[in-house]
């Protein structure tokens, strides 16, 4: 149990560090689990965790669109009408306005999405999107390193 909490703390701190580097208010993570379900892993704060949980529940949102399309998805204002925004998600996470979702890949396949968010709506500049992609690579490195630890082996 202690080891699992240690993993959680590490991911929590990594998300916080990545958000700081990008200059975003927060970062959150969705990953595909060992039953091929997309799971809300959490965020650097409670808003991030809720952003992911709601997308997992309603099956819609920037993270899911990013995973389906296999490319970056930028949402300047989550409250905007579709297709620019996701008002269904925005209604349940009022504190999050602008979202950048980048797909996470290992060499073989898509494994999930890393999502940066801000409390204020704004346009995502191309340089920031590219930086988000590179930070996604760092997230994958941390995940791959953790995946090879022994306590998580076996089937659920």
């Amino acid at each position: 149990m202690t080891q699992v909490l240690e993993l959680s703390r590490l991911i929590d701190r990594t998300l916080g560090a990545l958000a700081d580097v990008l200059g975003a208010d927060g970062a959150a993570l969705m990953l595909i689990d060992d039953h091929d379900r997309l799971r809300a892993i959490g965020g650097s704060d409670d808003h991030g965790r809720r952003l992911e949980l709601i997308q997992e529940q309603i099956g819609s949102g920037p993270a899911i669109e990013s995973l389906v399309r296999g490319e970056d998805v930028t949402v300047d204002d989550l409250r905007a009408a579709r297709p620019l925004g996701f008002p269904g998600v925005a209604a349940r996470v009022s504190e999050v306005r602008a979202v950048l979702s980048v797909p996470l890949r290992t060499e073989e396949r898509l494994i999930g999405t890393l999502n940066f968010y801000d409390r204020m709506s704004h346009e995502w500049q191309p340089a920031k999107v590219r930086a988000g992609e590179r930070l996604g690579e760092l997230m994958v490195m941390v995940l791959q390193t953790l995946a090879n630890r022994s306590p998580i082996s076996g089937q659920s």
């Binding site: 991911i11 039953h35 290992t106 995946a147 090879n148 659920s156």
Partner: peptide, 19 residues
């Protein structure tokens, strides 16, 4: 933390099989 430990471990297990 704001992390779901069970979802994290299940996802890392998936990653382990291919990485």
């Amino acid at each position: 933390t704001h992390i779901d430990p069970e979802a994290l471990v299940a996802s890392l297990r998936k990653l382990r099989t291919t990485s």
